[in-house]
Amino acid sequence: MMALVTIYIDDKKIIANSEKTILEVARENNIEILTMCHLKGLTDVGACRLCMVELEGSPKLFSACTTKVAENMIVTTNSERIKRYQRITTELFFAERNHICAVCVSNGACELQNLGYKVGMEAIRYPHLFPQCDVDTSHPLYVMDQNRCISCSRCIRACAEVEGAYNWDMMGRGYQIRVISDFNTPWGESTTCTSCGKCLQACPTGALWAKSIVQGQQDKHPEFITDLMERRKMKL
């Protein structure tokens, strides 16, 4: 049942629908909360931990994308602690895989790069892990480059929830997780992939890209996924 609640985000009083998450309410009111794994229209998983916010009365942090608003909730999104943690998360993203902006198709139009600029990251203070990663070029149209993957699972959710093809999935555990096609077979041999390209649009970095694109020419439109889901809801 829908109810209206009063919440305070960074001292701003907001009347909000109790069905909504903190992130949705904040975005509707032009309060910026950084995210990576969130894409409007897809189910939220709370995996990137960038959207952590402080709630008054609790020493814990909460992920804004998976926490629903409640009456008299007092939310802080921009404390020094939050900013520090956002920066560490960003640095860990860069240190985890092999993000070499200079040779990437997404250079200049990359959500991860923009995130770095937003948190003011000049250099990565942590040692890089430098894992050996595969590049799957077997698909006639697209490429999957594990080096640039941040494991946000947006491609997986787009494939399952929007296209309904269930081509992508996650394999392994810990720092060794990999996004796989079908049962870890080459993407080109997939029996489920419809080559619709929705995963490409959902991908925030240069991990998924079309072969027709050269370095620095990527132009992605993740909002297309959002738009599509909104239209479906309206039965257009």
Binding site: F94, N98, I100, C101, A102, V103, E122, A123, I124, H128, F130, P131, Q132, C133
Partner: peptide, 13 residues
């Protein structure tokens, strides 16, 4: 100098 970039690409091997 900041994050090894292309020079660091030999680090995977």
């Amino acid at each position: 100098a900041a994050m090894t970039n292309v020079t660091g690409m030999r680090n995977y091997f």
